[in-house]
């Protein structure tokens, strides 16, 4: 099977499809036309830059390029999570960074050295796998934190009543942490269930389009999905299990409004 290449003139046609989206927005009076144009342009620019950077990195591989790339992706992911969750106290923001980086790095090393058996120094494997893991961890952590915040606000009375009665913070927080971790993992679990029947996963499709044998692409896809699921589970567990305790002060008083 040969690699499929796309000419730039053919590629430009794909943007015509966006006109259909813009027409739907105009018909339904959805005020997001500008947003989708900006998002498309931004995505195009970001991916073109990423493409050329990766081309350079693949041609001149050095360990520090890999580390720099991972730091950039991880740093941006952490920034996005914190920026969207400004309600978090400083200590929780630090914990967010540590739990995302810790779980992602752990799973990357496991994937590279045990599953794929490639070196961390090999950018062709390290960078795409890191990108997929960081991306899913970003979505999962965002969802987990959103659910945790919404639930603790909606059920504040429950927290205060149990605190006044003398329940332990860990016991009080347990159902909130479980619900948040569950909601963080739900998209991946749903994805796993439908995969291969009603959806063809992006990574596998990409490999097949690029000329890989489908049976080999499947193995990579399964490994990646399980790795993503584990990275999300680990990062949200670390963040919420430990973080929920940091929302109580030394007198065991609930500190969140």
């Amino acid at each position: 099977m040969g690699t499929i290449t796309m000419s730039y003139t053919s590629f430009v046609w794909v943007y015509v499809l966006l006109l259909a989206v813009l027409s739907v927005f105009a018909y339904c009076h959805i005020p997001k036309s500008l947003a989708i144009i900006v998002a498309s342009l931004r995505m195009t620019a970001q991916l073109i830059v990423a493409g050329y950077v990766l081309l350079y990195v693949f041609q001149y591989p050095h360990w520090y390029f890999n580390v720099l790339y991972l730091c950039l992706m991880g740093g941006y992911c952490i920034y996005r999570v914190i920026h969207k969750n400004l309600w978090m106290p400083r200590v929780l923001r630090w914990l967010t960074g540590l739990s995302i980086l810790g779980s992602v790095v752990l799973i990357i090393l496991f994937m590279l050295y045990i599953v794929i058996e490639k070196s961390f120094l090999n950018p062709q494997f390290m960078i795409p796998i890191s990108g997929m893991l960081v991306g899913s961890t970003l979505t999962g952590t965002m969802l987990g934190l959103k659910t945790f915040r919404e639930q603790t606000q909606a059920r504040r009375a429950q927290i205060l009543v149990l605190m006044n009665m003398g329940a332990r913070p860990r016991k009080i927080m347990a159902p909130f942490v479980s619900t948040a971790i569950e909601s963080a993992l739900l998209p991946i679990i749903n994805n796993m269930v439908s995969m291969g029947i009603i959806s063809m996963p992006g990574m596998m499709t990409g490999q097949i389009l690029a000329g890989a044998m489908p049976n080999e692409a499947v193995l990579y896809q399964i490994s990646i999905i399980i790795a993503q699921c584990t990275a999300v589970a680990l990062s949200t567990f670390l963040l919420l299990h430990i973080g929920s305790q940091l929302l109580w002060n030394r007198q065991l008083q609930w500190t969140l409004d």
């Binding site: 009375a157 429950q158 205060l160 009543v161 605190m163 006044n164 009665m165 003398g166 329940a167 332990r168 007198q251 065991l252 008083q253």
Partner: peptide, 19 residues
């Protein structure tokens, strides 16, 4: 110890909460 105190001196909220 805070929990021991709350288990001796029970504050019953105005806003009740039932599961």
């Amino acid at each position: 110890e805070p929990l021991a105190l709350r288990r001796r001196v029970l504050l019953v909220n105005q806003q009740s909460y039932l599961f």
